[in-house]
C-alpha cells in the first residue's frame, strides 16, 4: 500500500512538472498569436495569420515530451505551442510574421513557414500531408547511418490532411518501413469551412490505424492531462520499436481558418459543446485545482509570456525587410550552377 502511494506520488510529480512546463508554452503561444492577430488587424502584416487557438494543449503536449537535439518534430500551421515547446526561438516566429530580413527564411517565406531542420524541425510547405514522408526520410537516413537508436519523429496534421494521397502514401510507407513515426492529427472539426462528414466516412479517424497496421489512440484534445498521457504512451511505444503511431486529438479550432475568416460555418451548438472548451482555461483550472501551481504562479507565467512576446515583436519590428536589389536571387546551392 505504501509502495503504491509512493508510486502515485512519483507519477503525479512527473505529470505536474510536464503539465506546468507544457502550460507555459501554451500561454506563450496564445499570447504571441493574440498579439500577431492584433497587428494583422492593424494592417501591419502582409499575408495570412493562422493561429492554433484551442489546439495549444494538444500541440504542446507532444512537443514538450520530445527530446530536443535528438528527435524530429514537423509542425503545421496551428502548432505555435508545439514549436515553442520544441525550442523554436520566439524571435524566429516574430521575424517571419513581420518580414524581417534576419528571420529564418530571410523574407522568402512568411508566417508559419519556418523551421530549423538542423535542429530536427523541418520547414513546412503548404501542401497538406507532404511533410509526413519528409519526416520518414529523416528517420530513414538515421537508420541507414545506424544513428536511429531511440529517436522518434513526429508529424503534425489536421483532419483535412488525412484525405490526401500524400498522407496515405507516407503512412503506409512508414508502416512498411516500421519507422518510429508519430502522426499527430488535430481533428478540429473543420478543414477551412468543410466539416468532417465531408472529409471522411469512418466513424472515427483513428479507425484508419488498423488498416495501415499501426497503433492509434483517440484523445480529448482539450484536456491537457489526457494529451500529455496520450502522447507519453505513443512516444514510449515508438521509441521501443513498435512502429508508427497515430494520435487523434478531438477539439475545436477556436478561430477562423486564418484571421481573415470569422468562421460563420461553426454553429453555436458546436461552439458551446465540450469540443469548444478552451484548453488553456481548462489547463489553468486543472493546474490550480491539483495545486501544481498557485493562481499567482499562473499569473506570473502569463506576465512572463507577455514580456517575452513584447520583446520579440519589438525587436522584429525594428529590423529591416529584405532588399530586393542586393538579394541573392539563386535557387541553386551548387556553386557551378549559381549565377
Amino acid at each position: 500500500m505504501a509502495n503504491s502511494a509512493n508510486q502515485n506520488q512519483k507519477l503525479n510529480g512527473k505529470l505536474s512538472t510536464i503539465a506546468v512546463d507544457t502550460y507555459r508554452w501554451m500561454v506563450l503561444a496564445r499570447t504571441f498569436e493574440d498579439r500577431i492577430s492584433n497587428i494583422y488587424r492593424a494592417g501591419k502584416i502582409v499575408g495570412g495569420v493562422y493561429v492554433g487557438k484551442g489546439q495549444e494543449a494538444f500541440s504542446a503536449s507532444l512537443a514538450s515530451q520530445l527530446m530536443k537535439g535528438q528527435d524530429i518534430y514537423s509542425p503545421l500551421i496551428r502548432d505555435m505551442a508545439g514549436r515553442a515547446a520544441f525550442g523554436e526561438p520566439l524571435i524566429d516566429a516574430a521575424r517571419t510574421y513581420l518580414g524581417s530580413a534576419q528571420g529564418p527564411s530571410v523574407g522568402r517565406d512568411g508566417n508559419v513557414h519556418r523551421g530549423n531542420s538542423q535542429e530536427g524541425m523541418p520547414t513546412m510547405i503548404s501542401h497538406l500531408g507532404a511533410m509526413i514522408s519528409v519526416v520518414c526520410g529523416m528517420l530513414f537516413a538515421r537508420r541507414l547511418r545506424k544513428k536511429l537508436n531511440t529517436v522518434v519523429g513526429a508529424a503534425c496534421i489536421g483532419d483535412g490532411a488525412t484525405s490526401t494521397g500524400a498522407f496515405h502514401e507516407a503512412l503506409n510507407m512508414a508502416a512498411v518501413e516500421k519507422l518510429p513515426l508519430i502522426i499527430s492529427i488535430a481533428n478540429n472539426q473543420f478543414a477551412y469551412s468543410t466539416p468532417t462528414d465531408r472529409q471522411f466516412a469512418c466513424n472515427e479517424l483513428v479507425d484508419r490505424a488498423a488498416g495501415y497496421g499501426v497503433n492509434g489512440i483517440n484523445i480529448n484534445g482539450t484536456d491537457l492531462v489526457e494529451c500529455i498521457e496520450g502522447f507519453e504512451k505513443v512516444i514510449s511505444l515508438a521509441r521501443a520499436g513498435d512502429g508508427p503511431q497515430i494520435v487523434v486529438g478531438n477539439l475545436l479550432r477556436l478561430s477562423g481558418h486564418g484571421e481573415h475568416d470569422d468562421a460563420p460555418y461553426v454553429s453555436n451548438e458546436m461552439r458551446s459543446s465540450d469540443l469548444g472548451q478552451d484548453c488553456l482555461l481548462k489547463a489553468k483550472n486543472k493546474i490550480i485545482e491539483e495545486s501544481w501551481c498557485t493562481e499567482n504562479e499562473c499569473n506570473e507565467i502569463q506576465e512572463q509570456a507577455t514580456v517575452e512576446v513584447n520583446a520579440a515583436i519589438a525587436q522584429a519590428e525594428s529590423e529591416k525587410g529584405p532588399n530586393p536589389y542586393s538579394h541573392d536571387w539563386n535557387a541553386y546551392s551548387s556553386p557551378s550552377f549559381r549565377k
Binding site: A130, I132, S133, V134, R142, E169
Partner: peptide, 22 residues
C-alpha cells in the same frame, strides 16, 4: 519502395536534409 511516388520523393528530401544523397 512501395508504389508511392509522392512518398518516395518526400523520403528522399528528408534523407537529404540529414546529409544523404538519395
Amino acid at each position: 519502395s512501395p508504389i508511392s511516388e509522392d512518398a518516395m520523393v518526400g523520403l528522399a528530401v528528408g534523407a537529404a536534409i540529414e546529409g544523404m544523397r538519395p
